[in-house]
Amino acid sequence: MPDDSAWAALRLSAWLAVTVTPAYVLAGAWLAWALEFGLRRPAWLDILVTLPIAFPPVVIGFGLLWLLGRQGLLGPWLARLGIDFVFSFAGLWLAAFIAGLPLAVKNLQTALQAQGRDLHETALDLGCRPLAAYWRVHLPIARAALAGGVLLALARGMGEVGISLMLGGNILGRTETLSLAIFNAVSGGDYRQAAMLSLCLGAFCLLLFGLVRCFQPRSRNLS
């Protein structure tokens, strides 16, 4: 059976999943709008959103540590506001959010692109403002893509290790998520516990992937 530290990691990961999911929904919807229908559709924003997919997580984690750490560029200012991302749940949350967000945004953006510009122009001709057209027309049609992207983002965020190590610090019973607990168990030679925790995390991700398939449009046999 998992020990107390493993149960603590499970509870922490569950709470992390609950709190980061709404952020995936809101940020994914807004960023997809900015990238697809924004007035200028800035290339730098697309690069920034896509970066965590291709960039090494440990490098991103170091960059965030350099930016948000207590001795970082924004660290002293954040400390005066009572905000601390290092060795805290906030750091774990930020790591999961950054790691998973590109999947939520890109999945929705692809669905929006498939709708075509004619639909957008028609909504504008009928009197909708650009932002209202997005929320009332485009997003309801693409809600399945948003849901699927959020589930994929959650699976990616729960498996995050590199950024979490840099920001959270991997403190036993405090900032040790389920994925970090697996890493620690393997490092300590406790393969039995690593296997049990891996089954838990793997089952959770398989459940998410199964839900993603439920949101995918079914092809119709026209023959």
Rank of each mutant, 00 (worst) to 15 (best):
D3L: 01
D4L: 14
W7Y: 11
W7F: 14
A8R: 13
S13R: 08
L16F: 03
V20G: 05
Y24E: 04
A27L: 14
L31N: 05
W33N: 14
A34N: 08
G38K: 13
L39G: 15
W44Q: 04
P52F: 05
I53Q: 10
V58E: 06
V59F: 13
I60C: 12
I60H: 04
F62P: 09
L64E: 03
G69E: 05
G69R: 11
P76R: 11
L81Q: 11
F87H: 12
F87M: 06
A90F: 12
L92H: 09
G100S: 04
G100M: 02
Q109C: 05
T110V: 12
Q113R: 15
Q113L: 15
A114I: 06
L124D: 04
R136C: 12
H138R: 07
A144N: 15
A145D: 04
L146V: 03
L146F: 06
V150D: 05
A153D: 00
L154I: 01
G162H: 09
L167I: 10
G169H: 02
G169Y: 02
N170D: 12
L178I: 05
N184E: 09
V186E: 02
V186H: 00
S187F: 00
R192E: 12
A194V: 01
M196N: 00
M196I: 11
S198D: 06
C200V: 15
G202A: 08
A203P: 00
C214D: 04
Q216T: 13
Q216A: 15
P217S: 02
R220I: 13
L222I: 13
S223D: 12
S223K: 08
